[in-house]
Design a protein around this nucleic acid. Structure first.
Lengths: 335, 335
DNA sequence: CTGAAAGCGCTTACAG
DNA sequence: CTGAAAGCGCTTACAG
């Protein structure tokens, strides 16, 4: 049996309350008492039982982070940053992989684990605004990624429409005239993809370029294999594109690979822009131009929003932050 | 206040014990009683308080996975597989990032959170065998990755020496005669790097090739940037290599990028092999030959070892498994 | 098959 | 500044 508060109290000759005060850094303890208690703690190797503390105090010191997939670079980086930020604030993070499906995401929303965590950071892919509004679980929640219009929850994201315009405008600026988009998701929610698509269209309009539905290729998921397949479909067109905007970096890296296998030169024949600024794209050949969301800001803001909800120091209404993004031009559009 | 067992019991007109029996799927409950209880649960929206359950039962249903970094592809994939496997078995996973430093790893070893998790899956980078043996925390532990010779703990890994030989032999087989190694870590523990280095040397000896210390480049960490820098150093040699074995895929992708920027052809001028079979290497240009550890087997075995320890169904002594690996030849050695 | 009661290890008013 | 006691919401022998 590991030692408990009571054992420490007996050894130090004080009450459990005093030990508890020492353990929790309560200030009004005489130095002599504190020393005596601390010595007993050290001698016994006492460590507080976090479960009991949590049951009694109603706080676990654990946050949940729910993301679609850990091995999509963007989510892996986000997870790292969230875990680091939370650790700075004295919190542990439980990671939940939803797979991006609605069913799994509803499980998160219903708070199956909410008795156990103090709050939830959630990056949903398939949920609708109605799903979010219908939530009954009362654990504090902060949404990442998609913009939930008029949703009831705190939210941290970027301006996807603006970012997609920036990416497309960049292709226009270097002389592309037939610009394709890879990653559209029309059926279902997929707010992110929809916003990026609408930014793409806005940019075409602005540039006086026609919108050609043939150049918009949907993707089931956002992996390299999907980007490869989409690029292959575009190349099979009678009039293939001279520029491609991919809705994330893995799609773009898959597209690059497809172009390489066909012997098509990037950026001379086809220019490519991705989205997310994954480390991969900095070392690919050619290196990948991309939209870089400010991930540290996203992670820090989200964690701090959540902790403020948990502490009750947050304002009543939902808080929303749009983190900045930047276009990072690299070789894949260098012409 | 969320409803508790007692509220459900009152509503259903039974004792809390009976509700508990229903909630926990205990079989000897009359169907009529079960239905009545279930209805009360549904009406109240009752969900068990996991913290209380855990305090009472001594089980939390939570496993910890401690890895150096989530955004190293190998660990991200491993994390995904571990989380999936654990979920299958009814467990949640807390992820701990150690950064790979000894201090942080000692924190894991000391079990700061062990009151809170049922067991720990740990992939250490900096710990020595002595550190491991000195551990006093009694939470079940399964080690991943390094081989801890005669350690007291369960362990799941691959044969790093053999795998490194396979990689190097492959380079020999395609005609390389000056083969470099990137990723050596001489000072400190770094068992993995040491094993891969020793496999590399064994293979050279076997092939009758001289060992040239100039061709062995250390790497502080195992990221693309390190691979890039190491390759640059190799190219500055008076007699640069014609083949490179990198101790992981990010190192190899960094090396590829360096070669591309110098206009050196891969595999014609320099052939490159990596290690881990990250998805990145399947879509790089050229695609990356690599050693593919059987990651699903590693994750499944590790989780099952741990659960057996937790259940007490494991044998007394340490269990060790060496998961298979395969060499995957791709364009970077296709000549 | 079901009930009454103790207790997991803490924290927190309440006293003093 | 410190102590005695209640209670967080469960599970689990112990009875019946």
């Amino acid at each position: 049996m590991p030692p408990k508060l009571r054992d420490v109290a007996e050894r130090a000759g004080v009450s459990v309350k005093t030990v508890s005060n020492v353990v929790n850094g309560y200030v009004h303890v005489k130095d002599a008492t504190r020393d005596r208690v601390q010595r007993a703690i050290d001698e016994l190797g006492y460590r507080p039982n976090l479960t009991a503390r949590s049951l009694r105090s109603g706080r676990s010191g654990v946050l949940a982070l729910a993301v679609p997939e850990l091995d999509v670079p963007y989510f892996a980086e986000l997870a790292r940053l969230v875990v680091e930020t939370a650790a700075d604030r004295g919190y542990t993070v439980v990671i939940d992989q939803t797979g991006g499906g609605r069913e799994q995401e509803m499980v998160v929303l219903k708070g199956i684990r909410s008795h156990f965590v103090d709050g939830v950071l959630f990056s949903p892919l398939a949920l609708s605004a109605a799903d979010l509004r219908a939530r009954t679980d009362r654990a504090p929640l902060v949404l990442l990624g998609e913009r939930a219009p008029r949703g009831p929850d705190d939210h941290v994201g970027i301006d996807n429409v603006r970012a997609a315009r920036d990416a497309t405008e960049h292709l226009v600026a270097i002389g592309c005239r037939r610009i394709a988009a890879i990653g559209a998701q029309t059926g279902g929610p997929g707010a992110t993809a929809r916003q990026r698509l609408s930014g793409y269209r806005a940019s075409l309009t602005e540039a006086g370029l026609p919108y050609d539905p043939d150049l918009v290729v949907p993707a089931r998921s956002f992996h390299r294999a999907d980007g490869f397949a989409a690029m292959a479909a575009l190349l099979a067109l009678p009039d293939p594109p001279d520029g491609v905007f991919c809705f994330n970096d893995p799609l773009a890296l898959g597209a690059l690979r497809c172009l390489a296998t066909r012997g098509i030169r990037v950026p001379q024949d086809v220019a490519v822009v991705g989205f997310d600024d994954a480390e991969d794209g900095r070392y690919s050949t050619p290196s990948l131009s991309t939209i870089a969301p400010d991930k540290p800001t996203i992670a820090t803001t989200a964690v701090d929003f959540l902790l403020a909800r948990i502490d009750g120091t947050a304002p009543t209404g939902p808080r929303r932050t749009t983190a900045p993004h930047t276009l990072v031009p690299r070789e894949s559009t260098d012409r």
